[in-house]
Amino acid sequence: MLTDAVVNGITAGSVYALVAVGMTIIFGVLRAINFAHGEFYMLGTFGAWWGIETLDLPYIVSIPLALIIVAAIALAVGVLVMKRLIDQPFQIGIVATLGVSLVLQNVIILIFGGAYKMFDGGWIEPVEILGISLSEQRILIVVAALVIFGLLELMVHRTRFGKTIRAVSQNIEACKVVGVNVPVVVIGTFVLGCTLAALSGVLTAPVTVSLYGGMGTSITVKTFAIIVMGGVGNVSGTLFAAWILGLMESFVASYLGLQFRDAVAFTALIVVLTLLPGGLFSKRERF
């Protein structure tokens, strides 16, 4: 039971981490909390489900398909909505992204219906590693999270796009002074962050199996808790906060009862904020 709880916790934590890191970099450049972030996780899941069910594609092909669809939607949202949030007070961002979330969620419900769907795909054969039996899909999730975080760290420190993301999140006025095209960076970061959320959704679907239009809300809400605990804008802090939350939830579900799991994130968040208003991994260097 203990190893199960740890394995489940790390898997769930990796899922959260992929969603949350997107939100945290978007927050970095826009200083706006993306209330629609969980919807992109949901859209990723739906994109892959649609590929498998309607187009009869294998899971492995439906992954890039879903990511391309979500990136396109994110691009549209970025151009129409997120770009306008530059230099706006934070409430504007909350309300606008809440609007985006309502639209995306209910458009999906309108198209596909509000009922739960079954996700039929992925690699769910159990394998044994070091005496622990777990499905291939879970290993894939954890490995994908580690690889993506490694790549993100490299990107923000070594590439021009990454440095520009950091620049926009540190000083938007200085960006204008040195001629950074801030709207392009904002839209690019938004598309990247949303695609990461979608990737998380696609990778998790075989494990969670069921999907429905409103599934993004609880992910968004948990992601808030993670990014605040991890220190908003902090990439590696996000990974650790996500793992800690995954483990806590897993232990609470195993030892106290499944019904308490969803309150863990916010109880932890409120405790953390009470003790450390800057978050668990608050340091000046954000990326």
Binding site: Q170, N171, A174, V178, V180
Partner: peptide, 19 residues
């Protein structure tokens, strides 16, 4: 102050070079 405080001097100059 109008620079990128958490980036190195090199990186700050790079940001300007990009333009």
């Amino acid at each position: 102050r109008c620079n990128f405080p958490l980036m190195s001097v090199d990186e700050n100059l790079d940001m300007a070079s990009y333009a």
